[in-house]
């Protein structure tokens, strides 16, 4: 009896967790999809397979040459359209990935001041590092050229104004 009630409580808790966990931590992404997309079921796949099937139909004598040419040109157009769409989608998704990548990178403002910023890898979590833990570039250096006063950015080895070498110093960069 007690075991049964315990089991009932466990079932209830598991179910509640399953259903409401996404609401408690909204950051979780949607469930993973096990089945990858079947390439044959995309517009591109359907059109390409239709073209292949046309060849077979003509070979088996089920299509007149006239109909073959007519259908062939239509499916060819569809396939090309699908190919173009797909390339656009790919380009779109590349751009989106870029943007997303930029967005995902924590902006300097999100970090407490005093953090170092690497030109390649963005703000670094270590406040007192001399080199970037991501790419090894020198992080800490003067803000301006010691000779001519031109502003320099981290990683710069020579001054853009006078050509003198930039000296590194121990002070963290204010960001």
């Amino acid at each position: 009896m007690w075991a049964e009630m315990l089991a009932a409580v466990v079932v209830a808790l598991v179910m509640l967790w399953l259903i409401f966990q996404p609401l408690l931590s909204p950051a979780t992404t949607a469930a993973e999809w096990i089945e990858p997309e079947d390439p044959d079921e995309t517009p591109r796949g359907i059109a390409l397979l239709a073209l292949k099937e046309l060849d077979l139909d003509r070979e088996t004598g089920k299509l007149s040459d006239e109909d073959y040419r007519m259908l062939q040109s239509r499916y060819a157009a569809e396939a090309l359209q699908a190919l173009r769409n797909e390339e656009e989608e790919t380009a779109d998704s590349q751009i989106e990935a870029l943007i997303a990548g930029q967005r995902a990178r924590p902006s300097p403002a999100d970090l407490p001041s005093g953090h170092l910023v690497c030109p390649t890898c963005g703000p670094r979590p270590e406040a007192d590092a001399c080199f970037c833990s991501g790419c090894g570039v020198v992080l800490v250096q003067d803000k301006a050229c010691a000779f001519c006063g031109t502003a320099v950015v981290p990683g710069q080895k020579f001054c853009g104004g006078c050509g003198n070498a930039i000296k590194t110093s121990g002070a963290p960069l204010p960001v």
Binding site: R44, R69, S73, A76, A77, A79, L80, L83
Partner: peptide, 24 residues
């Protein structure tokens, strides 16, 4: 006329289609 569609296909598109078909 049955070839209107095909006639509009540029050489570049034709090549692209043939490349895609050859991969099937």
């Amino acid at each position: 006329p049955v070839l209107t569609g095909a006639a509009n296909v540029s050489a570049e598109d034709q090549a692209r289609l043939e490349r895609a078909l050859s991969e099937v």
